[in-house]
Simulated scan of single mutants.
Amino acid sequence: MSTPSWLDRPLLGFDTETTGTDVAADRIVTVALVHSVGPGRAHETVATWLIDPGMDIPEPAQRVHGISTAHAREHGMEPSAALAEVAEMLADALRKDVPIVAFNGSFDLQILENELRRLGLPTLAERLRHDIAPVVDPLVIDRALDRWRKGKRRLVDLIELYGVQQDGALHTADVDVSATLDVLRALAAKFPEIARADLAELHQKQISWHRESAESFNRYLQKQGKTPDAKETWPL
């Protein structure tokens, strides 16, 4: 009798939409946490937060997620209250060994930790009193296990590659999370070793896979005469 996979147990999907891509200076505008206990939307419970970031949302960011400065100011929560709730829900899941699933999750976790520090709140790592784990990032896994595939690796590209059905527009945080969970399951179907892996072991493998990918990209940048700036640590 085969051992049940961690994919058959609860997962917590996580995504943010932000004012930009600088994890040190930008702010979170929306957060979605999707608790999944099985494949398909019928097995998901969604929690979302709209946050007033306390700064203007630049036009490029508005075009991505559709949230204006005026809308966030009128309808958004105060950041401290919202992000304290988010951090505690993430911490509670990780304490129960429920993995955080996030596409390019290093970005979302870094900006969350920076926001919590800025607001004088305990960070996720401080709440856990250990490293943030287990985290599962379909982008890291896809880069490692389908290394030589040509083309881009955005979430929209993997959705198309794996034939994932979308419900709603991407760059709405909850839609992105549901699609990420589906992409993860599709990856595990293509690469069964993912489903068979121990969660702690898979987390450690992703650390190595990300480092190898970043080192390779930095070597490429050096050859092009550019500054190697790919961060080699993951998820923080």
Rank of each mutant, 00 (worst) to 15 (best):
M1N: 08
M1K: 13
T3A: 12
T3C: 00
T3W: 04
S5Q: 06
L7N: 07
L7I: 11
L7A: 10
D8V: 01
D8M: 01
R9C: 05
R9A: 15
L11P: 00
G13F: 01
F14A: 12
T16Q: 06
T18E: 00
D22P: 08
V23H: 12
A24S: 11
A25W: 10
R27L: 07
I28T: 07
V31D: 08
L33T: 02
S36A: 13
R41P: 13
A42G: 07
A42E: 15
H43P: 03
H43M: 13
V46D: 03
A47M: 04
T48W: 01
L50A: 09
D52P: 04
D52L: 05
D56C: 02
P58Q: 04
E59N: 07
P60W: 08
P60C: 03
Q62Y: 11
V64I: 15
V64E: 01
G66N: 05
T69Y: 07
R73H: 04
G76R: 06
E78I: 13
A82K: 10
A82E: 05
L83E: 02
L83I: 09
E85W: 05
L90S: 08
A91P: 08
D92E: 15
D92V: 03
A93F: 08
L94D: 02
K96C: 12
K96S: 14
V101W: 00
G105C: 10
S106N: 14
D108M: 09
Q110L: 11
I111Q: 05
I111R: 10
L116D: 07
R117W: 09
L119G: 09
G120S: 11
G120K: 10
L124Y: 03
L124R: 07
A125V: 02
A125F: 01
E126N: 05
E126P: 04
E126G: 13
R127N: 05
R129K: 14
R129L: 09
R129S: 14
R129F: 04
H130Y: 00
D131E: 15
A133I: 00
A133H: 10
A133S: 13
P134L: 02
P134S: 08
D137K: 11
V140K: 08
D142N: 11
R143W: 07
A144L: 05
R147V: 10
R149S: 15
R149W: 03
L155R: 07
E160A: 15
Y162A: 10
V164F: 03
Q166E: 12
L170V: 03
L170E: 00
L170A: 06
T172Y: 00
D174G: 02
S178C: 12
S178L: 11
L181G: 06
D182T: 12
D182Y: 03
D182F: 03
A186K: 14
F191R: 15
E193Y: 01
A195G: 10
A195H: 01
R196C: 06
R196S: 12
L199H: 02
A200E: 13
A200T: 13
Q204M: 12
K205G: 09
K205I: 00
K205F: 10
Q206P: 02
Q206M: 11
S208L: 14
R211P: 01
S213P: 00
A214Q: 06
S216H: 14
S216T: 15
N218K: 10
N218L: 11
L221D: 03
G225I: 00
K226Y: 05
P228R: 09
P228A: 02
D229T: 15
